[in-house]
Structures are given as structure tokens and as C-alpha cells.
Nucleic acid binder design. Structure first.
Lengths: 336, 336
DNA sequence: AATGAGACCGCAAACGTTTGCAATTTTATG
DNA sequence: CATAAAATTGCAAACGTTTGCGGTCTCATT
């Protein structure tokens, strides 16, 4: 059995005063004399006293914990977002509990429940690719636990949301392709029910429409969000009678999957086929040719989402959910 | 004020039984009749009851939390490690609290204290570049809180450690350069007091020694662990009368920093100068020329460290710390 | 010397659980 | 039917805090 940590009562006994006094002394309560405060503080230091957050939380019915649920921590975008979240949370005196859904709805559910049990002050959630229901979020609403979606948001739940302007990013990307003279522009899209996929697809369609390019449904293929999906997507495009002359991928990993296959098949980028990704992963700058992409401020998204959540936690029930959209920027490089 | 969550007492009142019975029913205690269990469980479900981990933790004097401290979550290696940690922790019924030191000793200290206050069951730590003291870890020892170092370990503390075989990895890398005929092999090293820097430097030196290549101290420059350090390091090597014909960098970011400068200065890789990194970041495979590097199983390091910690948590005080070394592998690509 | 005001401190209850033990009810046995 | 044994439940204390309220003590003021 581990030696139990020193408590406020230990200090009290040692000084022959009451635990209440110790508590107040440590929190610098005006009722306590300077002398007592000094004695308490120095003994606390000496005895390695650390306040028990657990007991405090129980008493005060609130914790200093913020729960975070992401599909995969490894994913560059989420790692950066978590970084931003931690930064803001730290400054506001919160610690973050991070869990990953591994793109599984079931696991996401379980994570939500676990975090509820841990009595988190609030949650930051980016939903999994397979999440098409929202009962677990309803649960949060019923329990009146503040939560904010970021990046991959759930449209049918009323809650604050922080996203990047996916539509505009996609639009700018495709418009740039059009203006550069490309005619047959393909799109490897993401899972249909994810809002980011939809927005980016819509951006693609709008840009075509604006420039009076007729929409060819064969040029849009659907898949997931990983490299392998880029590989598969490109293979499907290869079946076409006539190859597209440009390719807009739903995100960078997909673009890179396609990128490799394109090169493997001996096509030149951008001469034979131009390529644009989405996210501005660090890697896109370094590949050859460097990849044109849409920058998506992951770190900022995390920070902003955390700020919004903390604001909501502080303001209580009369908080009106907001949706924030961060700007994207087209980073033009050599793949177009 | 938020609606307070439903408690065991709420259920008890509703069913006209005692809280003790509810508690036992929920935990499937044999003393409770099947009928009562059913009634309790269904009502609990209906009322959205979620056990209060805080209260449980207080009572049982242990939490289901594992603290994690890393320099930076964004860093590819750490993101992957955290991913592995979460995976193992999840399976063992733990949640992880993640905090970053931002390479600051002070912040690392604060994080340790915060996690102690949160009464974590154990800690997983990778120390910051600026950490040269170890008083905060002594604190953990005194409080008998289990903790395990991973990757960046603290040598003067007796605790379990999970590292990769940095020495061997570096040795293999440099030996490969030697066997490929390179003569003037430079090394951009990391911070001197970090064990990973030391081990990799020693691997470099040993390989030279084995092959009777005399050690030229001008060929070793020291810096940090980021891209900019690779840039700076290469600039210092540029000052030399005679340029090295090969360069072994302490890690991939540093290698990439150098990589870019090398190309900028119009040198060819590997003709003018060969380059080897360390970590096998995903990016290294995709740059042109692809980077020879030493693979370092980040995900595995995280998993193994978590496993070790959980074992230690379970076995109590009579646990003997172990140091585990995971194998590295030389990934030969086109930069050599 | 009596009174009142401050300054300082302690009592006890509460937060939501768990758990040893005792109390009660049910069932089995003679 | 009586009794013992077994099955089921409740009581109360405890985990480490915080906090409203009341208590004691010291002093200055009449």
C-alpha cells in the first residue's frame, strides 16, 4: 500500500489547530492571522503537502478538467489542435483529459461516458468518421455539460462550433485551378456525412459553377481521409477514358496518397496533372514538387475552441452557442 | 448553476431503498437480489446515472488517471507516443491527462505538481530540453507515486525507463556511411545533457573509432532538436575550410533543417553531401531525395511505457524499476 | 468595570461514494 | 411450529476538503 499523501488534517494536528484554519490559511483567508498563515505554509511546504483536487472537486462540485475527444492523436491536425487546447487550458487553470475514438462511433460513445463520469467541466469534441448518430451528445445536453465541437462538427446538435472555412478554402483552391487553365478538375472527396467533406465538395462545385464548367460526376470519387484513400481514389480516376488534368483532394494525406501513385505511374506533376491538398501539413512544403494546399490553422482552431468552452463554462446556462469560422489561405506551391 | 448530476441517493430515494444497496446493486454485488439489481439498473439507465469518479476516487483513495508530460504535443514523435499511451491506458481502464512543458523546466515542475494534486495513479514523463535538475522527480519518489520516463529520460533518478537504442541506431547509421565510402562525417548533435543526444553522439564516435577514423572535433556541432537547429548547425559546418561529405543529424527535424539549407546552397544530396536523420518521421519518406533515417518506434515506446507504468501501479511498492530499450532500424533511402 | 467591536479560530455538516457490521427478512430444516 | 441458517438490506463511518455560523479572546472606549 502506498503511503497516503499528507492532508490538511495532518498539518492541523501537527500545529494543534483545526483543519478549517489550515484550509483558510492556505487559501489566504483574511480571518487568519499572519502568524498562523506563516506557520501553516511553511509546514505544508516542509511536509510536501499538495491539495487534494479530488476532495476539492467533490466539495465544490466542479473539477478543473476539460475532456478532449479526437479521432486520432497521431493525426497532424489533431496533435496541433490538442497543443493549442492544452495551452489555453493550462493558462486558465485546467488540465486536459485526452481520449481518441479511433474513428469508431462506439468508442466515441464510451469516451463521452467516461468523461461524464470524470465530471469534466466541459468537453471539446471532433467527431469520428463513423459517427452518424448523436445520442451521446444529447446525453451531454441533458446533463447540461458544456461542450464545443471543433473541425469535425455534428450539425444536428446545437452547440458551439469552431471550424475553418472549408467551403471558401475549397472554392479558392478550385478557382485557382480554373484560372490556371485546368479544365477537367477531379475531386477526391471525404466521407459523405462529414460536414468538412460536404463543405469542401460544395466549394468545389461552386467554383465550377461560377466559371460555367459543367459538373462531371465521374470526376468526383468518395473515400476516407487517409493516405490509402488517396491511393484508391486516384486508381478509380485512372479507370476513366480521359484522365483529369487537375485533382483537388479533400485533405493532405489523401493528396499525398494520390501524389505517390501519380508519380509511380509516371505522370508529371503539375504538367500531366495538377494537385491540391488541404491542411498545409508540414510535409507538403517539403515534397517534390511541393504541394499547393489550403492552410488550416490547426493550433488556432484548438485554442479558439478551448477559449469558447471556457467562456461557456464560466458563464453558465445562459450562454448562447456560437459558430466560429477561421480563415483558410491558399498556399500556392509547385504542384499546380 | 448547472443541474447537479443524478446520484446514487437519488436512485435510492426513488426506489425506497438505501444508497448502500444501490451501490452494491450497480457493482453487481452477490448480496443483492436479482430483482433489486434489475430495478436499480433500469432506473439508473433511465435517469442517466453516471457514477461519480470523483467521489469514488476519494473513497478508494486512487484515481483512474495517468498523467503524461511531454515537451510538445505537436512534435510528431510525442503525438505518436501519446497515441500509444492512450491506447494502453484505455484498455486498462485509465484516462490520460496530458500536459506539455514547452521545453521549460519551470513549467515541467508546475505540471508535476498539478498532476500530484490531481492524484494521478502514475506519471509518464519525457523531460524538457532545459531540465537539468530533478527535484520535482524526487518529490514523486517521496510521495511514492509511480512514474516512468520515456525517450528523454532523467539519468540520475531511479525509475523505469523506456528508450530506443539510440547508441546502436547512431552506430549503424554512421557505420553505414563509412561503409559507403564517406570519409568526413559530421554530426549535428542535440543538447549535451540530454541522454538521447549523448547516446547518439557516442554511437557516432564509436563507429568512427571502430573503423579507425580519427575524430575531428570541428565536425561535431551542438544545438537543439528543431529544424532551425539543423539550419544553424549546417551554417556552422559551412564555415569549415573543407566541407564534410556526410552529415548525421541528431533527429529528423534537424536533418530536414539542414536538408533545406544544403539544397538552397546548391549542393547535391547525396553526391556532394550525404544526409542521415533519426526518427523516421513520415515526412522523411516523401522528400526528394528521400531521407535515410533511423526508425524509432514512437507508438511502441508510448505503449511500452504505459504498460510498464500500469504494471508498477498494480504491483505496489515492491516493484523493481526496469529500463527497456526498443530496437531501432536503419531505413536506407536515397540521401546516402 | 462593563460593554462592544474586531480579530481569530473551531464545530459540524456537506459533497457522493464504499464497506464492515448489524439488522431484518426469507427460506430451509428438524 | 420453532429455530437455525441463509439471503437480503440498512446504518453509519469514512475519504479530504470547504464554509456558515458561532465561540472565544483581546483591546479600546465609556
Amino acid at each position: 500500500m502506498r503511503k497516503s499523501p499528507v492532508t490538511i488534517t495532518d498539518i492541523a494536528k501537527n500545529l494543534n489547530i483545526s483543519p478549517s484554519t489550515v484550509s483558510r490559511a492556505l487559501r489566504n483567508h483574511p480571518d487568519i492571522s499572519t502568524r498562523t498563515k506563516k506557520r501553516v505554509n511553511s509546514l505544508a511546504e516542509e511536509m510536501d503537502y499538495h491539495p487534494d483536487s479530488i476532495a476539492q472537486s467533490l466539495k465544490q462540485r466542479r473539477t478543473n478538467l476539460i475532456g478532449v475527444i479526437v479521432p486520432e492523436i497521431k493525426h497532424n491536425f489533431f496533435a496541433a489542435a490538442i497543443s493549442g487546447i492544452e495551452e489555453i487550458a493550462y493558462k486558465a487553470g485546467y488540465a486536459i483529459i485526452v481520449s481518441q475514438s479511433n474513428e469508431s462511433y462506439d468508442r466515441e460513445r464510451i469516451n463521452v461516458r467516461a468523461l461524464i463520469s470524470n465530471r469534466v467541466a466541459g468537453l471539446l469534441i471532433s467527431i469520428s468518421q463513423t459517427t452518424e448518430q448523436s445520442d451521446h451528445f444529447k446525453l451531454l445536453e441533458r446533463q447540461e455539460i458544456p461542450f464545443v465541437f471543433f473541425d469535425r462538427v455534428c450539425e444536428d446538435i446545437e452547440a458551439s462550433k469552431v471550424v475553418v472555412d472549408d467551403f471558401d478554402g475549397a472554392f479558392k483552391a478550385v478557382e485557382y485551378l480554373i484560372n490556371s487553365g485546368y479544365k477537367r478538375i477531379a475531386h477526391i472527396a471525404g466521407p459523405k456525412h462529414l460536414s468538412i467533406s460536404q463543405c469542401r465538395l460544395n466549394g468545389y462545385l461552386s467554383a465550377l459553377k461560377k466559371h460555367k464548367i459543367s459538373y462531371d460526376e465521374n470526376l468526383v470519387v468518395y473515400g476516407g481521409l487517409n493516405e490509402e484513400d488517396g491511393v484508391k481514389g486516384f486508381h478509380r480516376l485512372l479507370q476513366l477514358d480521359q484522365l483529369p488534368d487537375a485533382l483537388f483532394a479533400v485533405n493532405d494525406p489523401v493528396a499525398i496518397g494520390a501524389f505517390e501513385k501519380i508519380k509511380e505511374h509516371g505522370f508529371k506533376i503539375p504538367e500531366d496533372i495538377a494537385l491540391i491538398g488541404f491542411s498545409n501539413n508540414p510535409i507538403t512544403r517539403l515534397i517534390e514538387p511541393s504541394l499547393t494546399t489550403v492552410s488550416q490553422p490547426a493550433y488556432e482552431v484548438g485554442k479558439r475552441a478551448a477559449e469558447l468552452l471556457i467562456e461557456q463554462i464560466k458563464s453558465g446556462e445562459n450562454f448562447i452557442p456560437r459558430k466560429e469560422m477561421l480563415k483558410t489561405e491558399l498556399i500556392i506551391r509547385n504542384s499546380t
